[in-house]
Simulated assay, not measured.
Amino acid sequence: MNRIKTCLVLISLIIISGCKPSVKTKNEFYIVGQMKDVMWKGKLGPSIQLDTIKNTQGLYGLGPVSYLSGELLINDGQTYVSRVTSDSTMSVEKNNTISAPFFVYSNVKDWKIVDLPLEIQSIVQLQNFITDNSKDLKKPFTFKLKGKVSKATIHIQNLPKGSKVSSPKEAHQGQVNYKIFDEDCTIVGFYSENHQGIFTHHDSYLHMHLITDDEQKMGHLDDVKFEKIQLYLPKN
C-alpha cells in the first residue's frame, strides 16, 4: 500500500512540474576592475579584453580604454571605440579587439519604454526619475535613452603616454570635452546605489556614454539637455 502511495505522489509531482511555466533567465550583470583603482592606484592596464565576452546578444557595456587613451561603448552587441584626434575632432570606430582597466556590462533581454517627461533636463533630474521608477527592479541595472538632445557635453580620456596616475586630477590629464547640439542619439547607462567608485563616480548613481545616430561622436556623458527622448528600463 505504501509503495502505491509513493508512486502516486511521484506521478503527481511529475505532472505538476510539467505544467509549470518556463522561468526567464534574469538579466546578466558583470563588473570587471574598479574605477577607484584606476584613479587612485594607477591601475591603467587591461583588466578585460572585450573580444572575450562571448554572449553578445543584447550586450551593453562601457568604460575607458586601457591607459585612459579613449572611451568604450557596447550598444546592443556592437563595440565602439572613440579617441581624441584634436581639441574639436575625434575618431569613432567599431572594434572589439580592445581592452579596458575597468568595465561594466550586461545582457538585457527585454525593455520597458517610458517617455521621459519634458521637465527632466539634467543628469541629476534623470537620476532622481530613474530612482523613482525603478523600485521594482533588481539593482544594479542597465538602461538606455533614445531620441534627441538639444545639447550635451561628452568627454574622451586622452592621458599622455607614460603618465603615472595617483589621483583623479592626474587621471584626467589630457581629457578633451566636446559639445553636441541638436543630435539624435543613444545614451547607454548603468545605475547603482552601491557602486560609487567602482563603476560610477563618488557623487552619482549613474555612468553614461552617448553615441550619435550617425556614429561620428561618442564619449562619456557629463551634461545634457533633452529634447524628445524615451527611457528604456530593463524588465526583470
Rank of each mutant, 00 (worst) to 15 (best):
T142K: 09
T142I: 09
F143T: 08
K144M: 13
L145T: 09
L145A: 01
L145S: 11
K146F: 00
G147K: 14
K148L: 05
K148I: 03
V149F: 14
V149K: 10
V149T: 13
S150N: 12
S150Y: 06
K151V: 02
A152M: 07
A152L: 08
A152V: 07
I154N: 09
I154G: 06
I154L: 15
H155V: 11
H155T: 10
I156W: 11
I156K: 06
I156Q: 10
Q157T: 12
Q157Y: 12
Q157H: 08
N158Q: 03
N158Y: 00
N158T: 00
L159Y: 07
L159F: 01
P160S: 06
P160W: 13
K161F: 07
K161S: 14
G162N: 14
G162K: 14
G162A: 15
S163G: 10
S163R: 03
K164H: 13
K164P: 01
K164D: 03
K164C: 06
V165Y: 00
V165E: 01
V165K: 01
V165C: 00
V165H: 00
V165L: 05
V165G: 09
S166V: 03
S166H: 13
S166R: 02
S167R: 05
S167N: 02
P168L: 07
P168F: 04
K169C: 05
K169D: 00
E170C: 03
E170Y: 04
E170M: 11
A171Q: 05
A171M: 13
A171S: 15
A171G: 11
H172A: 09
H172K: 02
H172L: 11
G174Q: 11
G174M: 15
G174D: 05
Q175E: 03
V176T: 12
V176Q: 11
N177I: 13
N177Q: 09
K179G: 08
K179M: 13
K179L: 09
I180V: 15
I180W: 10
I180K: 09
F181T: 15
F181V: 11
F181E: 10
F181P: 07
F181K: 12
D182Q: 06
D182N: 12
E183V: 04
E183M: 07
E183C: 04
D184I: 05
C185Q: 01
C185V: 10
C185Y: 07
C185H: 11
T186Y: 11
T186I: 14
T186A: 12
I187L: 06
I187D: 07
V188F: 04
V188W: 00
G189E: 06
F190N: 03
F190Q: 12
F190W: 07
F190V: 06
Y191G: 06
S192K: 00
S192I: 00
S192N: 00
S192C: 01
S192Q: 01
S192E: 05
E193G: 00
E193Q: 15
N194Y: 06
N194F: 09
H195V: 02
H195P: 02
H195T: 08
H195D: 15
H195N: 08
Q196Y: 02
Q196A: 05
G197I: 00
G197M: 04
G197D: 00
G197S: 02
